[in-house]
Simulated assay, not measured.
Amino acid sequence: MTATATAPVTPPAAAPAPPAPRPPRHRPRRLRRWLGNGLVQAFLLVVGLVWITPVAGLLLSSLRSAQDSASSGWWTALADPGSLSFANYASLLQNAGMTQAFWNTVLISVPTTVLVVVIAALAGYAFAWLEFPGRDWLFLLVVALLVVPVQVGLLPVAKLFGQLGLFGTIPGVVLFHVAYGLPFAVFLLRNYFAEMPREMLEAARMDGGGEWRIFTHLVLPVGRPAIASLAVFQFLWVWNDMLVALLFADSSSQPLTVELQSQVRQFGSNIDVLAPGAFLSLVVPVVVFLVFQRHFVRGVMAGSVK
């Protein structure tokens, strides 16, 4: 008997190896390298000096006497720092109109910011995670209100406030700012809250948490950067506003911006009052921004990097 020869079994061809993944691009490193360039740093330094020069000029002018300001420019104080003093600020504190206007600005800006943030946070959570009839249509109405300019509502609202007895009062100015600040605030917080993971909220509901508890103990802490950004934006807008206050506030409720404009119109050259008042109006928003800077940057950058 002859044995039959068997053909050798060839192993199956190996599947081609998948292509190696591309290494991730390190854009932040590139950006840091680009910003580390000496030419770029020099350019940024020049931009910063140009930006800070008016502020430095205002500060030096507020520390100079009226005679020195009338005879020479503020930059001459750099060669004679002994001529600077805080006498103008002492006089400013004795100016009843300026001090009353400063406190009026605080009484307008702080309640407006608090009311806008609280109402917008509640409405933003409702539009993002609560189901109720007409939710989408109401949100579209809020978005549509963003395109309505402030100037359109000045005269009709002024007439309405006159009938309600709110014209020329601080509550009237606050109510107007709250009404026109809410559409943007609701739009901003709703979009931020909607980006939160649904699983996180469902897990909280499964653990027995109610909507109010979820909102106060989960949504608000997570949404702190966006809320801080909104608070800074709203405070700066109201603090620096003059158009609304010029129309809706009278002489007893006008803020610092209107009082400064009135001082310019009445006296014209009283730089010893205008310069410290203007610098005081400038430094408060700067302090607020520095206090909330960390949360503000996180809120602005939220959603831009995945």
Rank of each mutant, 00 (worst) to 15 (best):
A231M: 09
A231D: 02
F233Y: 13
F233M: 09
F233G: 01
Q234K: 11
F235E: 02
F235K: 01
L236A: 06
L236C: 10
L236G: 04
W237M: 09
W237T: 14
V238F: 05
V238W: 03
N240C: 07
D241N: 12
D241I: 03
D241A: 06
D241W: 02
M242T: 12
L243D: 10
L243K: 10
V244N: 02
V244K: 03
L246W: 07
L246Y: 09
L247C: 10
L247D: 05
L247Y: 15
L247S: 12
F248E: 03
F248I: 08
A249M: 04
D250Y: 05
S251H: 11
S251W: 07
S251P: 06
S251F: 09
S251C: 05
S252L: 14
S252Y: 12
S252N: 14
S252W: 08
S253C: 08
Q254Y: 06
Q254M: 14
Q254N: 13
Q254P: 06
P255N: 11
P255Q: 06
L256W: 02
T257P: 05
V258T: 11
V258G: 09
E259A: 14
Q261H: 09
Q261S: 13
Q261R: 11
S262K: 11
S262N: 15
S262M: 12
Q263F: 06
V264M: 07
V264G: 00
V264S: 02
Q266L: 15
F267A: 01
F267I: 00
F267K: 00
G268R: 00
G268Q: 05
G268W: 00
S269V: 07
N270I: 00
N270Y: 00
I271A: 02
I271N: 01
D272P: 01
D272G: 06
V273M: 13
V273R: 04
L274V: 14
L274I: 15
A275R: 00
P276E: 04
P276D: 07
A278D: 02
F279P: 02
F279R: 01
L280G: 10
L280D: 05
S281N: 14
S281K: 04
L282E: 08
L282G: 08
L282M: 13
V283E: 10
V283H: 12
V284E: 03
V284Y: 07
V284F: 14
P285E: 05
V286G: 06
V287A: 15
V287K: 13
V288H: 08
V288W: 05
V288A: 12
F289L: 15
F289D: 04
L290D: 07
L290Y: 11
V291G: 06
F292L: 15
F292V: 03
F292Q: 04
F292M: 14
Q293F: 12
Q293L: 15
H295Q: 15
H295P: 03
F296P: 00
V297K: 11
R298T: 10
R298A: 15
R298H: 13
R298S: 13
G299Q: 02
V300F: 13
V300H: 03
V300A: 09
V300Q: 07
V300G: 03
V300L: 15
M301D: 13
A302I: 08
A302Y: 10
A302D: 11
A302C: 10
A302R: 07
G303M: 10
